[in-house]
Design a protein around this nucleic acid. Structure first.
Lengths: 105, 105
DNA sequence: ATCAAATATCTATAAAACTAGAATAATGGA
DNA sequence: TCCATTATTCTAGTTTTATAGATATTTGAT
C-alpha cells in the first residue's frame, strides 16, 4: 500500500484550487492528455505559475509528461490517482472489529 | 457534486503527514471514534499541535467532534471522506468520449 | 468551593508555498 | 543560420501553514 508520506504528498498536490483544476482538466481529457498551452487556454493561469503546478503534480506521479516536438503533453496517471483515492478509506474500522458489522457508513 | 473549493480544502487537510495520521487513525477506529487523549497517546503529538490539526480536519467536515463529559470524541465522517475520494476520478474522460471505450485505466 | 483532568486558545517563530514577471532553453521551420 | 514557438527555470515578494510552549477554559469529582 501507499506509504503515508507519499499519500500526504499526493493530497497536498491536490490541495490547492489551481492545481486541482489542472488535475481535473486532465482527468476529464482522458488518456490523450493536453499540452501546456491547452491547459493555459482553458484555465487562464500564467505560464510560469502553471509550469510550477505541473511540476508539482508530476513530482508526485499524479500526472505523466512527455515531450512531443515543441510541446509537452501532460496526462493524468489514472492508476496512481485511484490508489490515492483508495488510501483514504483503506483499513477502515480495522481497529474496531465489532463496528465493521455495520459496514461503516 | 462537491465544489472544487471544498474538495481542495479537504485535500489540503489530508495533505500533511501528521493530519493524515490523525484521520487514518480515526478511520481505523471506526464509528466509535477516539478522544483527543487517545490520539495523543497513539500519535505522540503535542496537545496544542494536535488540537490545531483536529480543528483543521473538523473545519472541512472530514471529522465530527462531540463533547462527552470532560473529553471530546472525534470520529471520521465516512460519507464526506468517501465523497472526497470519489471527487478525484469523477467525470473521468468526459471530454474525450472515444477514450471512454477503453474504460480509462 | 476547590482541585485535577481534558482540551482549546493565544502567541510567536520558523518554514514552506503561491504567484508571476523576466530571463533562459529546446525545438522545428524558413 | 536565424527566428518564432513552446515551455521551463530563475528570482523575489507575499501570504500561509506548522509547531509548540504558555495560558485559559470547561467539566466532574471531592
Amino acid at each position: 500500500m501507499l506509504a503515508i508520506e507519499q499519500a500526504a504528498r499526493g493530497f497536498a498536490a491536490t490541495g490547492s484550487v489551481p492545481r486541482l483544476s489542472v488535475l481535473r482538466t486532465l482527468v476529464r481529457a482522458g488518456p490523450a492528455g493536453l499540452t501546456v498551452g491547452d491547459l493555459q487556454d482553458r484555465l487562464d493561469i500564467p505560464a510560469s505559475t502553471l509550469s510550477h503546478h505541473l511540476r508539482h503534480l508530476a513530482g508526485c506521479g499524479l500526472i505523466d509528461q512527455e515531450r512531443q516536438g515543441r510541446q509537452i503533453i501532460s496526462c493524468a496517471n489514472f492508476p496512481k490517482i485511484r490508489k490515492l483515492a483508495d488510501y483514504l478509506l483503506s483499513e477502515c474500522c480495522v481497529d474496531s472489529p465489532e463496528a465493521s458489522d455495520r459496514s461503516c457508513p
